[in-house]
Design a protein around this nucleic acid. Sequence first.
DNA 1: CACGGTCATGTCAGTCGCTGTCATTACACT
DNA 2: AGTGTAATGACAGCGACTGACATGACCGTG
Lengths: 174, 174
Amino acid sequence: MIRAAVELFTERGFEQTTAGEIAERAGVTERTFFRHFADKREVLFDGSRTMERTAYDAILAAADDLSPLDAALAGMTAGGGMLEDIRDHAIRRSKIVAANPGLQERELLKLAAMAEVATEALRKRGVGEPAASLAAHSAVTVFHVAFTRWLSAQPAPSFADCVAQAADALRALL
Amino acid sequence: MIRAAVELFTERGFEQTTAGEIAERAGVTERTFFRHFADKREVLFDGSRTMERTAYDAILAAADDLSPLDAALAGMTAGGGMLEDIRDHAIRRSKIVAANPGLQERELLKLAAMAEVATEALRKRGVGEPAASLAAHSAVTVFHVAFTRWLSAQPAPSFADCVAQAADALRALL
DNA sequence: CACGGTCATGTCAGTCGCTGTCATTACACT
DNA sequence: AGTGTAATGACAGCGACTGACATGACCGTG
């Protein structure tokens, strides 16, 4: 279904594709489509939960002497690292998302969820508020900048490098 | 219409209120409702454009010797300052938004738009990339934290104080 | 005053996203 | 064979949203 959806979205665009058409190409019913995905957008955000868990685990696994921000950044690096193998798919996907405001909205929600998860992990490391929230959100901002660059840069850089670079830029602000 | 919508959302919740019902209470047609608001959620985000413009202007008007982050924060203070007069309404509104994921999604989109606008203003001040993006997003993160606190703190603090406090917490992270 | 323009609104029909419900099928365990 | 469970199909229905056309208020011009 995911493959069918990406194909159709690429061909005609997100809004011009009905849920029924995706289901049809995937060989199932529209009803079945909505049993697997809460809504039409969600088909493009399938791995997000896994990524959140990966980031969460990485933050908890980070060295004890790391600052909250560095620990959160380690989580972002780990989470984003999951995408190294599927850069092609990520690029196709990002083009679709970029062309539709509703999908960007959903992407923001996923980033916010990532920040929530990172906040939770930092708190578990003993970081208080509002430091945990701020560090987590800052890390996600870095993630976002790094992700954008990772998608567009030629030749393909490593995700970790992109994160490190964006993090340096953030530190330079102060 | 906005008043009618807030009333109904408070009484029965966002999802349990149809666009037709809002229109009816406001004395217009459902079709008219959708001529004024792009979708049902948008009725709760009416002033966002104005706030963005205010922030944008404030960033451009900020003292030349301010750092990018401080200039962006000045914009957040100015934008949030618009709400000082309508804190009651802001509180009611935030309860509605907090109760519905779809509305939180839209709120994130508005915050992202704010970050975009702030980025643009910083760029016009001569700030390069990715410094402008990062400073703008950091400022919006501070704005968000400050806004949350401004809504919940008792007695009502000034918005500027909340921003200053959140900004200090951010700086302490590094 | 009559006329033409535009602007907001009402009316109606229609598409599509999404959901509840029930029946069916396939498989797993006993 | 019998029983439970999970996935799917089939169908009906609601509500969000849109396009098209008609109506009426207002406004400036002749």
